[in-house]
Design a protein around this nucleic acid. Structure first.
Lengths: 347, 347
DNA sequence: CGCGGCCCGGAGAGCGCTCCCGCAACAACG
DNA sequence: CGTTGTTGCGGGAGCGCTCTCCGGGCCGCG
């Protein structure tokens, strides 16, 4: 393949000259070749190969008004993105789906509130055809930006301003069945004879946390009083919440933690307080982060969700809207993926 | 701010008309405003604000031949990217630096060998001004592609075909002082009176692993015979390697694992075999992945490296070359960032 | 009061591509 | 044999921007 390190790259014009046809014909061949005789098309393709022609995306975008790229926007405090391969997995799912459709992934990491102006400018600039946005807190300015600009956007995780799953959505999002998963966890604990089941909840401004809390309340046996402490999805937060729970409710015999990270923190505190897991206190996590759940001691019973699949679904939804007659109409649907319990040793 | 959900966005022309000046003047103002009187510039800026004008990046790229974007290429088997927040951190460092220079981050995940053709096409297409590439194995086709195209590229981690650090580089890369860090770890174990120090190495085709192995050999006390088993940087691999070591060298009293993940695997096996850590066997990891090292039982003594800083440096190096008279000349330099020992309880 | 220099702003030529339209050439039909 | 339809290809306009000229005003200085 020829190279063009510094000298200008060949243009359509050059290919046309070489193949003895017009620019338009080369363009047709490059874009699928409909309406061109086999003979001519082959000649063009040969010229393309000889010159090492690659279309200039900027020129193409200028006229087609499509960029072939979507933004992935991740707004998450450092603490979580660091300790948690959640986004890596989700992004990988997205990437796989986008690759299959020759679409590029532009990563926008939100470091702080001041970044939103930059991101708004970027999205308004028409750099991308659509966006995938993650983990929005209640007051996140992003949705407003996206709708103002009219950018097709799919959300990962139920956005905070959205009614609980099942209700009318207003936006398109993909989420795990957090509530159902929490029910699974609590029911499992109850089935194992536990009657004092506590909950370590996630941050109250995140729907994944509140949905899991709702699931806990749903499945709690009538005789068992709700016992809840709030963590922040981190190991430290889980430890603090566990200590708090033990102080307030020393009689507890089971804990459902809203994340594996918090479960690990709880595990540490339980060990310090000489409560055996699962004999004295049974423990169930959430997320099934393998590197965390499997390596814990004892390995964590937890609720599994298909993270990569969720990423894939998000991308698929967006690409569908982008393809469909280029309208970018995104039917407001919520797609809830199932969760399941993975039994290990902690409960 | 006005919106333009569907109707066409305002162009330079429109702004010019509104401000009563020419296109060229508006362009000057938008790009810094040098050579324009204050009065006129203000008028233009007002028109820009009123119309909600945002420059069309495609049109700009078409003439300037700069995209304002760089590719981040991550080629790593799933197993590692999943379990390991390493890339999240590195990418975050890169993102911070790029944001500060109004440059976009296009993420290219390599899923398999067949993806390289797609990536080559993408890079050749001139979508990006430069690239940052990670964790290249010896036979990785990427460097060849990058040089053929003439794309300024900075590598993360010493590429396999490159001579050991210190020698002439040939390419630009940023890496942690793996060898020095390994020396630190082994020396620490020796200082604590250990005389039978084994090593769980990473995959032999990765320079981070071989450099750490070299450091282990450097610092091993003369009286201590080398005892090495190879893992693959995963928990499971670490467990297998530990089992192997215990079988071959039951007399060992210390282990230096080339990653925290593998150290956790080793920890599990040691516990199963009723060897106390650190009393019977002292253990040191590498990477200082906080979520892993801190949550292990006992918390891991490990070698810390500034991962986010490395990402930052990579971006800074690339941006420097991109700025410098737009030549994109990248002086082949290797930048080695220091490591340090973090003492916790495992050694 | 005149002239050279300087600074500000405008006109216009593209960047490389797509796509609409129009013109051939040929088949089919009355 | 003229007319219409069909298919294959070329011409040309234009996407929205930057940047190189170039001209016109205004200053200072002689």
């Amino acid at each position: 393949m020829p190279e063009h390190p510094t000298g200008h790259r060949p243009t359509l014009e050059a290919v046309a000259a070489r193949a003895g046809v017009s620019r338009a014909t080369v363009s047709r061949v490059v874009n699928g070749g409909a309406g061109v005789r086999q003979l001519v098309a082959d000649k063009v393709r040969e010229a393309v190969a000889e010159l090492g022609y690659v279309p200039n995306p900027a020129a193409r975008t200028l006229v087609t008004r499509r960029t072939g790229a979507v933004a992935v926007i991740i707004a998450e405090p450092e603490v979580r993105i660091f300790s948690d391969p959640f986004f890596s997995q989700q992004v990988r799912g997205i990437s796989k789906e986008l690759n299959a459709h020759d679409t590029q992934l532009v990563l926008l990491l939100v470091e702080g509130p001041e970044d939103y102006e930059r991101i708004a400018r970027y999205l308004a600039g028409g750099h991308v055809d659509g966006a995938l946005a993650f983990s929005l807190h209640a007051d996140d300015p992003l949705p407003a930006i996206a709708t103002r600009i009219g950018l097709p956007t799919v959300y990962g995780g139920r956005p905070a301003w959205t009614p609980a799953p099942g209700g009318p959505a207003g936006v398109t999002y993909v989420d795990a069945d957090n509530r159902g998963g929490a029910r699974l966890a609590v029911r499992h604990l109850a089935d194992r004879g536990r009657t004092r089941i506590a909950h370590i909840a996630g941050p109250g401004d995140m729907t994944s946390a509140t949905d899991r809390l709702d699931g806990y309340r749903d499945a709690l046996p009538p005789a068992c009083p709700p016992m809840v402490a709030e963590g922040d999805y981190t190991v430290e937060g889980g430890a603090r919440a566990m200590a708090d729970l033990l102080e307030r409710h020393p009689e507890l015999d089971a804990v459902f933690a809203a994340s594996d990270q918090m479960a690990v923190g709880a595990l540490r505190v339980l060990r310090e307080r000489a409560r055996r897991v699962p004999q004295d206190v049974a423990l169930v996590g959430f997320d099934d982060m393998r590197s965390v759940a499997e390596c814990a001691d004892p390995p964590l019973t937890t609720v599994h969700q298909d993270i990569e699949g969720m990423g894939r679904m998000m991308a698929r939804l967006l690409l569908g809207a982008l393809d469909r007659d280029r309208g970018g109409i995104l039917a407001p649907t919520s797609l809830i993926t199932p969760t399941r319990l993975v039994r290990r040793d902690s409960a």
